[in-house]
Simulated assay, not measured.
Amino acid sequence: MKKVAVIMGSVRTHRINHVITNWFVATSGLKDKFNVEIVDLKDWMLPPYDEIVAPMSLKGAYTTEHGKKWQKYIDGMEGFVFVTPEYNKSVPHALKTHVDYLFTEWNGKPTSIVSYGYSGGDSSSDHLQSILGRKSAIQVKMTETLPQLLLKKDIFNEKWEIADINSSFAQYLPATKKVVSELDALFKSSTK
């Protein structure tokens, strides 16, 4: 089975990213098709990029230990799903930093985005699509379906936890399953 990293985009202390990530993995059928690894960027916490030249010029020859470890890990993945909140109409800084560290390790790999926020995370999804494709030097193979989960105040309990994620996000189940079938199709088209 192909190795797919599900990358959690938030590193905040008080976050719901892990809950949404686990819900996506559990309900989408991702594990039925792929070998899935959930990547919590809190476990990596890369500093601002500090190599002497841009990642595309390094060609994998990183000089820092943290850069070498991140490069080796991401290079070993065959596809990605980014689960990202929307912060101030963009992606979290930690997610941007971790993407910016690499270049060839992302290129050509099947990828999807699951965003969430009080507007469904549409701006963070759009920004991440621009970072990973469109006119960017990085060019992933993006799924057409990119679920945008709308947060509403009434889905939270008094501790600001999602009270019942399955009922709150039931309407997004078809889109999450479609992501899996589109990733699978992208992998199959890559091997032809």
Rank of each mutant, 00 (worst) to 15 (best):
K2A: 12
K3M: 01
A5T: 01
V6F: 09
V11H: 12
T13H: 07
I16D: 02
N17S: 13
T21V: 14
N22Y: 04
N22C: 04
N22Q: 15
A26R: 11
T27R: 15
S28Q: 04
L30T: 00
L30W: 07
K33L: 13
I38P: 03
I38G: 04
V39D: 02
D40Q: 06
L41T: 06
K42C: 03
D43N: 15
M45T: 07
L46C: 12
P47F: 03
P47R: 08
V53E: 04
V53A: 06
L58V: 03
G60K: 11
A61E: 14
T63D: 02
T63H: 06
H66G: 00
K68T: 03
W70H: 07
E78V: 08
F82D: 02
P92D: 04
L95S: 02
Y101K: 10
F103L: 04
T104Q: 09
E105W: 06
G108R: 12
P110W: 03
Y118N: 11
S119G: 04
S119W: 01
D122A: 14
S130A: 06
K135R: 08
I138C: 05
M142F: 07
T145V: 14
T145L: 12
L146Q: 15
K153E: 12
P174D: 06
S181W: 00
S181R: 12
E182R: 12
